[in-house]
Design a protein around this nucleic acid. Structure first.
Length: 369
DNA sequence: AAGGCGTGGTC
DNA sequence: TGACCAAGCCT
């Protein structure tokens, strides 16, 4: 009982502090907001696309993808009908590819269930595939003016500092607590601006590491600044070390084309294309054997420089092999593509970048193939 | 709750 | 070079 009372007192103190923030923060936002494509025309479709695209993705990385995406697929119905290959190509290089698959599913639901319009309702938005608490709050508040918080990484950092909270921001309960606090202070007349102001502050001023406190509209109310502990916050549990996977990637060449294969429909890089590759290190001497097992007739092979790619949870250490087939070799179970198709039609993950660049060079040098 | 799921910039 | 991190979601 005593503990609960203490909690309530803390909550009241936090609320008292946070109530001072919206006024100066929103004013600051209106004077300092960056000009961004989805802010020019914040239609529900564009806001939603931008929010999905910016999940765990920097604004600068997402911007060109956003412009291309909404030009090619300007509304829910065009997205709902888009080919999966088109979507993967539009998303190529952005990462977290399930986002765009979920977008198509969500667009289909919006067309079939809501007549082609995003519902102006937090719970309905939240129920869409690929939309979580943050994205639902962002879309509802920015596109429809619904007074719900949108707690992303920026907001977690800003609030941790204003409240001098040393709680681990990766814990669900911390996110929930911050959300509940914000629900009580979010301005009913401009929830979208308020949410974006918190994020914009986190992106431009209250940045990770050494914050630019002298520019901060909330500096007078910030407990971390008062205590001189801004740089120590937020607190975040350390990430688990990545596991290392050895792989072998084969640039298989035949008659001026390179072999591709489609990755499985689930798991890492699902549904994207790759060069023939397999787990483990294929010793050079076994290349001949490998080719025969695929029913291929090998003319020559050589080792390529190895390459490394770091994912969030895995490191690929890739051995590379160039293998040129005889012109009359069977094609095996691969998809053979020339340079134009490789560039324009098939979505390859960045993980293979070094090999993709090599493939272009090889396909464009006449004597190699 | 914790791990799967990408990529590129920064220090 | 390596570790951290970004407008998170799903299971």
């Amino acid at each position: 009982m005593l503990k609960n009372n203490a909690k309530e007192v803390n909550r009241d103190q936090d609320l008292e502090r946070l109530r001072k923030i919206p006024g100066p923060l929103v004013q600051w936002y209106r004077e300092n907001a960056r000009k961004l494509p989805w802010r020019d025309d914040p239609s529900p479709y564009r806001v939603w696309v931008s929010e999905i695209m910016l999940q765990q993705t920097r604004i600068e990385a997402g911007k060109p993808y956003f412009l291309r995406f909404v030009e090619r697929l300007p509304d829910f119905s065009s997205l709902a009908e888009a080919e999966e290959e088109t979507l993967m190509k539009l998303w190529e290089g952005l990462g977290y590819y399930s986002r765009v698959r979920n977008m198509k599913k969500a667009a289909q639901i919006i067309v079939e269930k809501y007549g082609g319009n995003m519902p102006a309702d937090y719970a309905a938005i939240l129920s869409l595939p690929g939309v979580g608490e943050y994205t639902a709050g962002a879309v509802a508040s920015i596109a429809f003016g619904v007074p719900v918080p949108a707690v992303d990484g920026n907001v977690l950092r800003v609030l941790s500092r204003i409240l001098a909270s040393d709680a681990n921001i990766l814990q669900d309960k911390v996110k929930k607590r911050f959300r509940e606090l914000l629900e009580q202070v979010i301005p009913a007349d401009c929830p979208g601006d308020f949410n974006q102001a918190l994020m914009e502050l986190g992106a431009l001023v209250c940045i990770p590491g050494k914050a630019r406190c002298e520019e901060c509209p909330a500096r007078k109310f910030c407990l971390a600044r008062e205590r001189g502990i801004t740089e120590l916050l937020p607190v975040k549990a350390k990430a688990k070390p990545r596991r290392i996977e050895e792989r072998t990637v084969v640039l298989l060449i035949r008659q001026g084309r390179v072999a591709l294969q489609k990755r499985p429909e689930t798991g890492l890089l699902a549904g994207l294309w790759e060069f023939p590759s397999a787990e483990g290190k294929l010793p050079g001497e076994e290349v001949q054997q490998w080719a025969e097992a695929q029913g291929l007739s090998l003319k020559m092979w050589e080792m390529l420089p190895p390459a490394k790619h770091v994912f969030s949870h895995i490191e690929w250490h890739m051995a590379g092999i160039l293998a040129v087939l005889k012109p009359d070799s069977p094609e095996g179970s691969f998809t053979w593509v020339g340079p134009e198709e490789l560039a324009g039609e098939y979505a390859l993950p960045s993980a293979f970048r070094a090999f993709t660049e090599l493939a272009f060079k090889i396909l464009q040098s006449p004597n190699e193939v």
